[in-house]
Computed example of a mutant assay.
Amino acid sequence: MSQRELVGQPPAMPSVAGGTAPAVLQVEHLSLEFLTPDGWIRVVEDVSLDIPAGVTVGLVGESGSGKTVTSLAVMGLLPRETTRVSGSIRLAGRELVGMSQRQLADIRGAEVGMVFQEPRRSLDPAFTVGDQIAEVLRRHEGLDRKTARSRAVALLDRVGIAEAERRSRSYPHEFSGGMCQRVMLAIALACRPKLVIADEPTTALDVTVQKEMLRLMNELQAELDISILFITHDLGVVAEMCDWVNVMYAGQVVESTPMERLFLDPRHPYTEGLLAAIPEGTPQGARLRAIPGIVPPPSEWMHGCRFAPRCAHVQAERCESAPVPLAGEDRSHLVRCLRADELALKGIVG
């Protein structure tokens, strides 16, 4: 992680609460409940975020924080029989909450694409990769088979698949994990969507392939002027990809700010803990820090600050007595911590 990436003035970006830049995606006060054998359990609570055109917004946190289910709610992929959704999700001004499955199917692939964490499980093993890309083009753009096939080959070439014409006739099992992820990216971008959701797209890749994938996503974003919701637990990847970052913990956004400010001036103890666990930010020979404990399941969320049991700065009477709001002196840095103004937390530099 270079100094150039971590220092400088924060960009003029809207906060989670909104801003002047036109938003491709606006999520406001989103809450999700799942039906379990013990009844309805809330798994995401009061999440708000904006993604302007051409901007990458990160959603960061440990496993179990609610990142993936938030993205699945945006895509309308959660089962309706066992999920309650409240709040608002607007794509280019259109409300998605309450849309029929047919309406959502028309939007998925055409206006919003998704790159999943495990591409082999997302690609159909019974069809060639070329056919799977062409199917998206035929479904949403009404292309004939020959034209869709030609476009599919061009897309494979654009995402860096060598000998694209020949490899378009290959099946997913004939590709490496990195190549499968490139195919997923080609599918996500086939119809030039307004928004791409990337859910941990580099987690299963080795370091070299991960770097290539991130570089490719940056190139295609600039070329196509798309917005990206980038979901990850890796703050090193955040520094390379994101303009704005929302840190999630136990179903809530606990900090929201421009990428540079997050690294230089973290305000929430959870964010500080994540930064301290980055190997590149740890002095040589020093012991790598870890956050004690684990993310609690929704059934064990506290009434007050949900991070309190793991927090080194907790004051029980203040932090555990009542829910903590997401707030800040200005809209460019919001934090869900009652002691944010008192604590002198350390960033990754300085």
Rank of each mutant, 00 (worst) to 15 (best):
E28R: 14
R149C: 03
G19P: 12
D330Y: 05
E165T: 09
V57F: 01
G177C: 11
L224C: 03
L156G: 04
D157T: 10
G76N: 03
P279I: 10
L216W: 00
G8I: 11
Y249M: 09
A126H: 09
S168N: 03
A188S: 11
H233I: 11
V209C: 09
R289Y: 02
D46S: 11
L6N: 07
V7Y: 01
E118L: 08
Q221L: 03
D46V: 07
P37F: 00
L195V: 14
S170L: 05
Q26K: 12
T68I: 01
P193R: 00
K194I: 04
V207I: 10
V237K: 01
R182H: 12
N246Y: 04
D106Y: 00
V254M: 03
L214A: 10
E95Q: 13
E212C: 05
L156D: 06
G236C: 05
L123R: 04
A190C: 06
G98Q: 07
L155E: 14
V209K: 01
N218T: 10
K67N: 01
P258T: 08
E219L: 14
P292N: 08
C242A: 13
E219K: 13
T147D: 14
I161G: 05
R182E: 10
T282V: 15
P292E: 13
L343G: 12
S88M: 03
V159H: 10
R151E: 15
M179G: 04
A12S: 13
R90K: 12
M114N: 11
V254P: 08
E272K: 03
A73Y: 09
C337T: 07
V245Y: 06
A286T: 10
L123T: 15
R339C: 02
P297R: 11
A17R: 11
F127D: 08
T128K: 08
G236V: 06
A148I: 09
V314L: 04
Q284R: 14
V16S: 15
L77Y: 00
K346D: 15
F116L: 15
T82H: 04
L78A: 11
Q284K: 13
V24C: 12
P119G: 12
A164Q: 05
M114V: 15
G18D: 08
S48E: 14
M75V: 14
A92I: 11
S2H: 05
V47L: 07
E219F: 00
L49K: 05
A92D: 15
C242V: 08
D131Y: 11
R80A: 12
